[in-house]
């Protein structure tokens, strides 16, 4: 039914054997956008601007103490219940008002709290690495996702992400997320909330 690996590869080897074989330099030195290389302040400013351009909403707090209050206020503006599924990575924070379950998201969950590994200034993108403390479906199943990111996790560009991953041991999923879900499939008009979250709210926290 399938062709065995050796036959398949031998066929391909045979097709290209007569061609010249250009080599590429290692490590790669490909052009990368100047906007991916800024100072800390520039990175934070660009991350915020680009996130907004993707129609994410973003709230900048001085520290982590006031996160729960901000989450509750945000949920009240959407008339959503004060109830969420959250990444186990967020267990260390204080949750008293909000009803939080630390698990992945299922079909009926409306709100999730997630913790991205990094924010990418270049494109205003959140980077998530899957793992026991950061389940993937938190980013896709609920209607409202609130991502909690600290300023010092904002890197310049994608190159900075690869430096922190070992290609021989990738997490099962690396998710780059730029704004809430959308579709342009009906007459090229953009509608938010196609299958993933309709609202992506980023809470950016300062150092303390």
């Amino acid at each position: 039914m399938t062709t065995d690996r050796q036959t398949f590869l031998a066929h391909i080897r045979n097709r290209i054997s007569h061609r010249e074989k250009p080599e590429l330099a290692t490590p790669r030195n490909w052009p990368s956008p100047a906007v991916a290389k800024g100072s800390r302040e520039e990175r934070i400013a660009r991350f915020i601007a680009q996130s907004k351009a993707h129609k994410a909403t973003i709230e900048h707090l001085a520290d982590r103490q006031s996160v729960e209050g901000a989450v509750c206020d945000y949920l009240r503006t959407l008339n959503a219940p004060l109830q969420a599924v959250a990444a186990p990575a967020l267990k260390g924070m204080d949750w008293t008002t909000l009803d939080v379950a630390f698990c992945t998201a299922g079909e009926g969950d409306r709100v999730s709290l997630s913790e991205p590994a990094f924010g990418i200034a270049e494109t205003g993108t959140l980077a998530f690495f899957s793992g026991p403390k950061t389940p993937v479906l938190l980013n896709f199943a609920p209607e409202i996702e609130i991502a909690i990111l600290s300023e010092d996790r904002i890197v310049g560009g994608y190159e900075d992400i690869w430096q922190r991953l070992n290609p021989a041991h990738m997490p099962r999923a690396v998710n780059f997320i730029s704004g809430p879900s959308r579709t342009g499939d009906i007459e090229q008009t953009m509608y938010l909330g196609a299958h993933g979250p309709k609202h992506l709210h980023i809470i950016l926290t300062g150092d303390q």
Partner: peptide, 30 residues
């Protein structure tokens, strides 16, 4: 960096996912 700009004029599509194998031992989903 070329794909979304050439396709829809976005800087990035909303979701770009790198998936490498099945669920790991302690993963909560996948």
């Amino acid at each position: 960096r070329l794909l979304a700009r050439s396709a829809t004029g976005q800087t990035m599509s909303v979701y770009t996912t790198l998936v490498s194998g099945p669920k790991r031992k302690d993963d909560l989903d996948g």
